[in-house]
Simulated assay, not measured.
Amino acid sequence: MGFPSPASDYVESRFSLDQRLISRPAATYFIRAGNTYYRDGIMNGALLVVDASLSPCDGSILVCRVDGEFKIKRYRKLPQPHLEDLETGRKEPLPNHDDDLTGPAAVFGVVTYVINDARSGEFDDCPVL
């Protein structure tokens, strides 16, 4: 029988992205971004981690179903609750609850994390240059 290793106090568990990025596995989805939104840090092809169980707060980025397609919008509360288009900044009304296409299922989920591929070199502080 020997002495315990002095390094045993510093042993770390394996790093798991699932544990760090996913709080509710049954309500979490991964979606690829189809467009680039520089101001929001989303590049074309970025992996979006979407939690369908969360309620949005002011400034949340949402995945919404619009005309049968998924679109990325920003949720704003003031001066009254509305959606904001990420490309143009235009205000859009919240989905109507009467129609199946724009009802409660229109807001698919809240984007919790954005994972960009840094190898492309496209992500820059100043995309205008």
Rank of each mutant, 00 (worst) to 15 (best):
F3D: 05
F3W: 15
F3R: 08
S5N: 01
S5T: 03
D9T: 01
V11N: 06
E12Y: 14
R14Q: 11
S16M: 10
D18T: 07
Q19C: 12
I22W: 04
S23K: 15
P25S: 00
Y29M: 11
Y29P: 03
Y29T: 08
F30K: 11
I31P: 00
A33K: 02
Y37P: 01
Y38H: 10
Y38S: 12
D40M: 05
G41L: 01
N44M: 13
A46M: 04
V49S: 02
V50K: 02
V50D: 06
V50L: 03
V50W: 13
S53H: 15
L54T: 00
S55Y: 11
G59L: 09
G59T: 04
S60P: 02
I61D: 12
C64T: 10
C64M: 02
R65C: 00
G68T: 03
G68V: 04
G68M: 09
F70P: 02
K71S: 06
I72M: 08
I72G: 09
Y75E: 03
R76C: 03
R76Q: 08
K77I: 05
L78A: 08
L78Y: 14
Q80D: 15
H82I: 04
E87Q: 13
T88S: 08
G89N: 01
R90T: 02
E92R: 11
E92K: 08
L94G: 00
N96R: 13
H97Y: 11
D98V: 01
D100T: 05
T102K: 14
G103D: 11
A106Y: 11
V107P: 08
F108T: 03
F108R: 02
G109D: 07
V111H: 05
Y113A: 09
Y113N: 05
V114N: 09
I115K: 14
N116E: 00
N116F: 07
A118C: 08
A118Q: 12
A118N: 09
S120C: 10
G121S: 03
G121L: 11
F123A: 07
F123Q: 06
D125A: 15
C126H: 11
P127A: 10
L129V: 10
